[in-house]
Write a protein that binds this DNA or RNA. Structure first.
Lengths: 207, 207
DNA sequence: TTACGGTGAGTAATTACTTACTTACCGCTC
DNA sequence: GAGCGGTAAGTAAGTAATTACTCACCGTAA
């Protein structure tokens, strides 16, 4: 038996969070035991409690740690400045609908909201609310410029995100098979939405 | 102490299913104990197991029993025959987005899919797949008649349902407040979608 | 030596589910 | 109607397993 080198506290903590996040995403908070988490992280159960005082605290650490959508917002901002509507919406949809996308965060988000975790709202805010608000602001500006027709910007933003999120729900949660490629799907959603929103319909694709 | 009249087996069973459905919807399968279910139904825990061999069987009975969307489909069919596009989509959206709508079924659906219950797929099929297929068929027909432009009917159907389902997710699961009335919201979604889909834009409302 | 990463072996509480038992009700005979 | 017996509704009090969490202790690197 080769003797294992010890991990630093930070490494262990990161490993525990990764192992736990995957399990919580798969089976929810109540469906995951601390024993399983320890086993998945390759340590004893006691060590889990050396790093996190309670199971709930570990869950909270996961929700608090996970990355935001800043990366996406940066790319969107660039196209937004150029008023390239199609690219703005294609970027947003393509960020969520693409091959090999990880469903862990979506599952964690849904589980935390359904199970009523106290940090769920914060988690939702960091991952989604910023995106709605960003998009709604863009739509509002475009309406002011006369590029989009006059609709409630927040409802319009949610309508578009709704198409995308719903698509992910169907494929990642309900295992509905995709019958079109990722690109075709994104294009169709963007096309449908922009045609409904723009004043001078863009009808670029009629497939 | 007034002596309680006994319930028939069917009454008890229905009462247990109602009590359990509410609890499972609120806290998920793993988050609900058989003790709680018994208490909510006003019986002893032992009686629960007289009616359902296991907790999971009770859960299954709930998913198998809950009503379908037949009611909605009937109303839709009527307007579909008249080719009243706006009414068809308004009916569908308004059926889900209305005051006092019950979130129990939506929560059960999400929980069962996330927790991977074997009957989840059947539950999903009875509540949603039929609706997609119905709507997709209608869209396909309208495309054939030249009323709608040429898009993938299934993707278009999902795009619309996506707006609606997403709206429910936000308000019923993530507790996002509504900033418009139910009617305004439905009208906006229908308007956005139909404008994107019809060949001769209907632009009836520009608010 | 000492501080810290790490663990085996607990514990009290809770869990899904059982068992052995009591009570109410319904149809039957008288 | 009174009495009776069978059956099904209903329960108190378990049980074995699992749960989140603890504690006393080990081993190794600085």
């Amino acid at each position: 038996m080769a003797k294992q080198p010890r991990s630093t506290s930070q490494q262990r903590q990161a490993g525990l969070i990764a192992a736990a996040a995957s399990l919580f995403a798969a089976k929810g908070f109540n469906g995951t035991t601390t024993k399983e988490i320890a086993k998945a992280a390759g340590v004893s159960e006691a060590l889990v409690f050396k790093h996190f005082p309670t199971k709930r605290a570990l869950y909270g650490a996961i929700l608090a740690e996970k990355v935001t959508v800043d990366e996406l917002l940066g790319a969107v901002e660039e196209s937004a400045k150029k008023r390239d509507d199609r690219r703005v919406f294609t970027l947003i949809a393509g960020f969520r609908i693409r091959p090999g996308v990880d469903s862990t965060l979506l599952r964690l988000l849904l589980f935390s909201a359904l199970e009523g975790h106290e940090l769920s709202e914060m988690f939702f805010g960091k991952h989604h609310r910023v995106l709605y608000d960003h998009l709604a602001t863009y739509i509002k500006n475009r309406i002011g410029e006369g590029g989009f027709r006059d609709v409630d910007p927040l409802l319009a933003a949610r309508a578009f995100i709704g198409m995308v999120v719903h698509h992910r729900l169907l494929h990642e949660i309900f295992a509905v098979p995709m019958h079109r490629s990722h690109e075709e799907t994104v294009d169709t959603y963007v096309d449908l939405f922009l045609t409904g929103l723009t004043k001078t319909p863009t009808r670029r694709r009629t497939r």
